[in-house]
Design a protein around this nucleic acid. Structure first.
Length: 264
DNA sequence: TGACGACCCTCTACGTTCAT
DNA sequence: ATGAACGTAGAGGGTCGTCA
């Protein structure tokens, strides 16, 4: 079984990062980093890289990018629902529609390529601990951070006007420390060696480090989902037809999301 | 109740810095 | 002097929280 996290750039100009996790032993309780790449270009390049670590058995991929976007205008129902519960944590998702993306949605292209090349489908329903499952699911790191690390507000490490480099570097260090703390979680994540090496200045290196952190978190999220399935640890918001987002949850967030689903 | 700011992420355009 | 690389500002859609 292998778990892949992809931080997918929306456009072609920026690079994407991929982190691959594998269970350390047959107990599946501890995950270790098998492989990573933080400067991948096209979808073809990404699929080639994922294909290079695929053993043909179980493969679960988590992508930080919209994969199913049928709506022309407005936002997807899963985004509305997610914002209602995560908005107070300043972790609401970006509304996505075909108009914003100019009708050219990179995630859909990647999903298609992964399906035809590696046989991973976007169907999110499968029994936990199924060792031969091959799926590709949309995940959202910002909500995952709030739920996994019990944050009151999302981490502010993204470049934004008025945000100093110093404050961003502090948030990166915090993010890295929080990811390291997953060593004592279930499943346990052995921190990769690069995790504590936060770049000290602006530039490509910092951007790629950021992508790697998000890709690592995406991989961990799908691994958690594989372990527990949908329930008190993880929720799938939305559906395969209108688009969905997989996110870890706290018990309070699970109640909020269930309430939202009942109203929808 | 309405207005406003903040937030999510990426892109484009433009200005600045650095190497050749 | 020139071009490449990089940083910054603002736009885009929709919702939530705060304040008047």
């Amino acid at each position: 079984m292998r778990f892949v996290g992809i931080d997918l750039a929306w456009g072609d100009r920026n690079t994407s990062a991929v982190v691959v996790l594998e269970p350390r032993d047959a107990s599946y309780e501890t995950l270790q980093t098998l492989e990573w790449h933080d400067a991948l270009g096209s979808n073809e390049e990404i699929v080639r890289f994922v294909g290079s670590i695929d053993k043909g058995a179980g493969l679960l991929i988590g992508v930080d990018a919209p994969l199913i976007v049928p709506n022309i205008h407005g936002e997807r129902p899963c985004e509305t629902q997610l914002r209602r519960c995560f908005g107070r944590y300043e972790a609401g998702p970006l509304p996505v529609n075909q108009r914003i993306c100019g009708g050219r949605l990179r995630g859909e292209g990647l999903l298609h390529l992964l399906r035809t090349t590696l046989g991973t489908t976007p169907e999110y329903r499968f029994p936990p601990l199924e060792p031969t499952v091959r799926r590709c699911l949309e995940v959202f790191p910002r909500s995952a951070q709030c739920a996994l690390f019990h944050l009151k507000r999302s981490l502010k490490y993204k470049a934004k006007s008025g945000r100093s480099l110093q404050s961003r570097l502090a948030e990166y260090a915090r993010y890295a420390t929080l990811l390291e703390s997953l060593e004592t979680a279930r499943p346990s994540l052995l921190p990769p060696s690069w995790l504590s090496e936060v770049p000290k200045r602006y530039g490509r290196e910092l951007k790629r480090y950021e992508d790697r952190l998000d890709a690592l978190l995406c991989a961990y999220v799908v691994a958690t989902y594989w372990h527990y399935g949908e329930g008190e640890h993880c929720c799938v918001v939305g559906d395969s037809r209108h688009g969905y987002i997989l996110t870890p949850v706290t018990p309070e967030l699970a109640i909020c999301l269930r309430k939202g689903a009942a109203q929808a």
